[in-house]
Write a protein that binds this DNA or RNA. Structure first.
Lengths: 200, 200
DNA sequence: GTCTATAATAAGATAGAC
DNA sequence: GTCTATCTTATTATAGAC
């Protein structure tokens, strides 16, 4: 699974060489890992100089931090769109999972970096991915759904795990090539059976 | 969350200094990460010499590999016990999740290393954790359950994700301190609502 | 088998010209 | 702001004595 050649939504509207640097970093970090990627590797792949990188990103962690924050900001924008487009809990949660499944196919490296990487190891200062705005809001969809009676009464966190757990697990296995089918083909089946555990 | 001081089940029946080395490595790898841990750190914490480590483990990856294989072998033994003790699918899957929840509380570093670490980054040759015998067998419980009609007809992989996805997600959030309650307190609620999605 | 002292390498970061 | 050449340091791994 390699990312598409077309310019990614995730890297739009930022200066071109910054985008080159971050895209190259994403590819190297996900394929070789943060610690096995040297700043030299990044400079070469991005076709920028070492000096450019250190001037704009401070240090190697700075690159990872910029990348992390950019991707999560874009994820947040996707959540915004879902929140506007759908009003009931079931539709919103479904839309979240559909979006994540589609991203897994179209931008596997982005998903790998966001959902699958151990950021704690190279970004010790940053919030863990689960505490991040985008993921907190995803869970919030479930919490308000329970308040409204759209989801059966239970521990709200348990409900959130049931809603998203199977999907996220599926994404991890797909990224590890254990699942061979494109995720969208499994979406309906997963969702129908997941929701059964939550329907009031 | 720190691991217990009592000698762990996971490190029994191996030579004492090997066990010291592997336990020290587990603690350092999970807290600082593989790449930020030097062999010198390990030797110091384990109270063995550098020479001892290189003689017995070949190199730094060799330590991680031994640790990985040892922990997965022990996990496999736990699955053995479950397979013998229970015969129906629902009991087996429940026992798996209960065991994982208990381990998360009693041996958080073991769980961190097994379920949460990105082994691909430092053990590129090893099978991904999801393809590992212990995890394949966990999924196999679900597959045979579907053959027997103990689980409703659906894509078997989807069923496996629904069974274990919520639990594994819960473990990840617990290890990241997003979940504050000990996992066993959430077990019944999680399982009751999860099974609802699978009951024929 | 075990240990200490040492070598070899590589990678992060910077200095200073333009 | 940008670039190249260079420095510094840390870490892996080994050599060789016991």
């Amino acid at each position: 699974m390699t990312s598409s050649a077309t310019p990614s939504f995730f890297f739009q509207n930022i200066p071109v060489r910054n985008a080159q640097t971050l895209e190259a970093s994403l590819e190297l970090f996900t394929n070789k890992g943060f610690f096995k990627t040297s700043v030299h590797d990044i400079a070469e792949k991005a076709q920028v100089s070492i000096g450019f990188i250190y001037h704009h990103f401070k240090d190697k962690e700075g690159i990872a931090r910029s990348l992390y924050n950019l991707l999560l900001q874009r994820m947040n924008e996707l959540i915004d769109q879902i929140e506007v487009a759908y009003t009931d809990t079931k539709s919103r949660c479904f839309a979240v999972i559909r979006t994540l499944f589609e991203l897994t196919e179209s931008e596997p490296e982005v998903m790998q970096f966001i959902i699958h990487a151990r950021h704690k190891e190279f970004l010790p200062e940053e919030k863990s991915i689960c505490s991040t705005t985008a993921f907190v809001r995803m869970r919030a969809f479930v919490f308000t759904g329970m308040d409204n009676g759209e989801i059966r009464e239970m521990d709200p966190l348990v409900a959130a795990m049931i809603v998203y757990g199977g999907a996220i697990r599926m994404i991890c296995l797909r990224l590890d090539d254990v699942v061979e089918a494109p995720l969208p083909t499994l979406l309906e089946s997963l969702w129908e059976n997941t929701w059964r555990g939550l329907d009031p």
